[in-house]
Design a protein around this nucleic acid. Sequence first.
RNA 1: GCUGCUAUAGUGUAGAGGCCAAUCAUGUCGGCCUUUCACGCCGACGACAGGGGUUCGAAUCCCCUUAGCAGCACCA
Length: 491
Amino acid sequence: MELAPELLEELSGPHERSRELPALEGAENGVVMRFAPNPSGPLHLGHARASILNDYYVRRYGGRYVLRIEDTDPRRVDPEAYRMVLEDIEWLGLNITDIVYQSDRLDVYYDWCRRLIELGGAYVCVCDAERFRELKLKGKACPCRERTADENLDLWQQMLDGEFYEGDATVRVKTDLAHPDPAMRDFSAMRIVNAPPHPRVDAMVFPLMNFSVAVDDHLLGITHVIRGKDHIANTGRQRYIFDYFGWRPPVYRHYGRMGISGVVLSTSGMREGIRSGLYTGWDDIHLGTLRAIARRGIEPAAVRNAMVDIGIGETDITFSWENLYARNKELVDPKANRYFFVPDPVEVTVEGAPVHEARAALHPNDPSRGVRVLVAAGTVLLPKADIEGKSMVRLKDLYNIRIAWDGDVPQVTYAGESLGDARREKAPIIQWLPADARLPCTLHTQDGDIEGFCEPLVAGERDNVVQFERVGFARVDAVDGGRVSAYFAHR
RNA sequence: GCUGCUAUAGUGUAGAGGCCAAUCAUGUCGGCCUUUCACGCCGACGACAGGGGUUCGAAUCCCCUUAGCAGCACCA
C-alpha cells in the first residue's frame, strides 16, 4: 500500500502539524530573517515567540536565518548570557545559519555614522538630555542642529577620540521636528559609555539600537522582520536611516503584546530574585525562562507548536499555559512510561493478603514495551488522599482491599482479586507501592514540593518525562543516593 | 497628555461584503473505551466589545464610543 506523502510527513513527527500562518509579502524567492536578542540573560517565552515565528518563515520559504547578538549596551550585557542564549537556541532547535555579534562591528557603525553626518543626515548634539527633551516636545530645534557637516565631523572625531565624557555628546539623526509623534523627532544614533567596560570589546562609543539595527538589517540583507509591536516606533525611526542612504527597508510585521501570567519574565527581576535567594537559578520553575520550562518537562516542539498556533496577530493576547500543556501532552503521552508515585503515603498491612506479583504495563497503548513487576508481600504504601473515607479500593494491577476506619486509622483487609467486584462496588482504582521496594521521591511543583515514594525503576528515567499514574506527567530531574527528584509538568 | 495599533467563545485562532444561524484547537460538561482522573472515540456548551452609518446584503468597509496595548530614553 502506498502512503500519501502528507501522511508520511505526519508520521515523521508531530513537528509540522501546526496550522499555516499567513503568507509574507515578497517572500516567494526566499527570505533572510533574523533573531536579535540582547545578551542580558537566558531566553524566555517572549524570545521564543519572536525566534520561532521568524524560524517558521525561514523554514517555509527557505533562506538564511541570522542570529544577531545585540550587545551594544555594556550596561545590559551579562557575559554569561552569550553562552546561555546559544544553549537556549539549540534547545529550541532554531535553524540558524549565521551568527553576528554587533560588538564585532563597531567600526562598521562608526563608518556609516560618519557617512550619515557627511550627508547632513545627522549631527552631534552636546545639549543636556533633559534640555533636548523639552525642546523636542515643543517641536523646536536645539542649537546643535544648525552646525555644518564639517563641524559635526570634527565633533564626531572628538567623540571617537575620547574627548567627551558620557552624556556630554550624542549623535542625532535629523528627522522631522514637526513630526506628529514626538517619538520620531531627532533620535540618538550614537552615544558614549565610559563604564562599565564592554566584556568583548575595548570601546567607549556605541551605536544605539536604531542605528545599528538599520545598518545591519541592510548590510546583512535582511528581507523580512517579525517583531513585537513595541518596535513599531523603532521601525519608523529606522526608516529615516534607510531613506538617507537610499536603502530598501525589509518588510516588517509587528505582532501584539503577549502577557504571560504566573511566572517572572523581566531579566532584572529574575536576576534580583536569584541574587536574593528567592529563586534557585535561571532554571527555577517559577521563572518563564526556556530552561525553566525545559526543566519542567516541556519539550521544545511543544513550545514551537504553541507559538505557531498563536501566530503573528496584532491583537494583544495572554499566553495560555493550558494550551502549551496540551501541546506538550500530545508529544509526551505516547513516549512517557507509566509509574506509580504515592504522595503523602500511608503504610498499611493488608490482612489475609497472599503474596502477589503485579505486572503493570509501562505504557497501556504499547504492550511491546513490557511491564514493571511489583511484588506485594502484605505491607503497602497508599496515597492518603485516595483512601480517606473509602470503604473499598482496588490497588491497580493487584487486588481489592476493604478498609475499616478506626477513627482515622485504616484497618485493611484483603478483598479478593476480582476486577468485577471492584467495578460493582465502584471502588476507585489507585496506585500503590510495595513497602519494601520503593524510592523516596520529591515531586516539585510550582505550588510547592510533594513528598512521597515512587517505583525503583524511575531511577532509570533520569531526564525523561514519565507519567505518574493518576498524578500527571513529570520530568525526572535527578537521582541522588536513591532519592528521586522530579518536576511536575502537567496532568 | 501626544502619536499609533488592536478589538471573534474561558484561552488561542480561521474569517480579507453574500459560501458564516461563524472554523479549528484547547477548555468545561456528558457518554463510550479502559485495571490511571492518561490516551483514543462520540456528543454538548460557548464568541463577531457597544452604537450609528454605507450596501439588496457586513464579523468583514466608514464614523463615534468604550476597552486594551505600544511608543514618546544618550535600553533592546
